[in-house]
Simulated scan of single mutants.
Amino acid sequence: MSGTFVDLGFVTAPSGVVVLGMVSWLDAWRELGEPLSVRAGAAAKAGGGHLREAEWECEAVAVPAAADRPLAVRATTEPSAFDEEPTVATLEVELGLPWPEGVDSPVLLGDLPVDRGGMAVGDAVGLDAWTGLEDEPADGLADLSYWGRYAEDAHARFGGERIPQPGGVEGPYGWLDLPVAEALALEAEISAWRGRRSGRGVATSVEPHVDYFTFRRAGVHHPLRVGAIEVGGCPVLGIDWCQGDHSVRHHGGRDWGQAFPVTLEADAAGGTVLRWTIPPYDAEED
């Protein structure tokens, strides 16, 4: 494991509250009662805490933070249990606040599983605006991709370019930044074409530009799959997870004991940081 922190970027917290949460559920908080910002604000007033919808898989941690400055986010890495590529081992967020006097040890806030959809760090109020799979894209655009056994035949018929994928691997054919209606119409045309021959073997996907997808696209060239986007007028960092690594290491989440401690700790300069620590993978223990 590399103990050296690498910089991932910056977030801001104009509300005075930073949230580290599971991406798959960020848009669900507002459907299940009070908005995320209300729950996070209450936790921050108590010094920080873990948030969870008991009957759902929504989880997050919220902490107080300085509202008047950028907050650095960084990470240490370790080799993935899947392909030995770097993956996050420790995630750390500067909070811009001094470490309280008289507190001599880290403060445990709870623990978080690794979400298959990724994790997000950002302002609590800003994240209230997060758009998920059922939402409309603010820019009215979408990406269309297709792949499969007869993708080359489809490419000869319809065109398209290779869509970048994490790790520089060859991606599917498709188009970026199409108007949603155009993307859906073209997908229907490809589907109708493939349906005229049994076993044509071409799959399609339309991904509207909601936040759930755009943070992944923003991080496609980052070695840790970190993407910076704006949500609710605030810069947010999303951390995608390699699906292979997630399946080997994190599949099952909390139900299988795969939840990892989140703490408040003092940094070398006497400031306070939020730290999420994922211990090294132990194949025998697994």
Rank of each mutant, 00 (worst) to 15 (best):
M1K: 06
G3T: 14
T4F: 07
D7Y: 06
F10S: 04
V11L: 09
V11K: 03
T12C: 11
T12M: 10
P14I: 09
S15K: 01
G16P: 06
V18Y: 04
L26D: 02
A28Y: 04
R30P: 00
S37M: 05
V38D: 04
V38N: 09
G41D: 01
A42K: 04
A42R: 14
K45Y: 02
K45W: 02
G49Q: 02
L51Y: 03
R52W: 08
E57C: 10
A60D: 06
V61M: 05
V63R: 00
A66M: 09
A66P: 01
A67S: 15
A67P: 00
R69M: 10
A72P: 02
A72Q: 13
V73K: 03
A75K: 03
E78P: 00
P79T: 12
F82N: 10
F82Q: 06
D83N: 15
E85T: 14
P86M: 12
T90F: 06
E92R: 15
E92C: 10
V93W: 02
E94D: 15
V103W: 08
P106G: 05
V107R: 12
L108N: 12
G110K: 03
D111L: 01
L112R: 03
P113Y: 09
D115L: 02
D115K: 05
L127M: 13
D128K: 04
D128T: 01
T131S: 14
D135L: 03
G140K: 07
G140R: 11
R149I: 11
R149C: 04
Y150P: 00
E152T: 12
H155K: 12
A156V: 10
R157W: 13
G159N: 08
G159W: 08
G159E: 13
G159K: 09
R162C: 03
R162W: 05
I163W: 01
I163V: 13
I163E: 00
P164H: 09
P164T: 07
Q165P: 01
Q165K: 15
P166S: 12
P166K: 08
V169E: 14
V169H: 13
P172W: 12
G174N: 06
W175K: 05
W175Y: 14
L178Y: 08
V180G: 02
A181H: 10
E182R: 14
E182Y: 06
E182G: 10
G195C: 13
G195T: 05
G195P: 06
A203N: 11
T204D: 06
S205I: 10
S205R: 10
P208N: 11
H209R: 11
H209V: 02
T214Y: 01
F215Y: 15
A218N: 07
H221V: 14
P223S: 13
R225Y: 04
A228F: 01
A228W: 05
A228Y: 05
E230R: 15
V231L: 06
G232Y: 10
G232V: 08
P235D: 10
P235C: 10
V236R: 00
V236W: 00
D240L: 07
D245A: 13
S247H: 11
V248I: 15
R254H: 12
P261Q: 11
P261D: 12
L264K: 01
E265H: 07
A266R: 15
A269C: 11
A269Y: 06
G270V: 12
V273C: 07
L274N: 00
R275G: 03
R275M: 09
Y281N: 05
Y281F: 15
A283H: 12
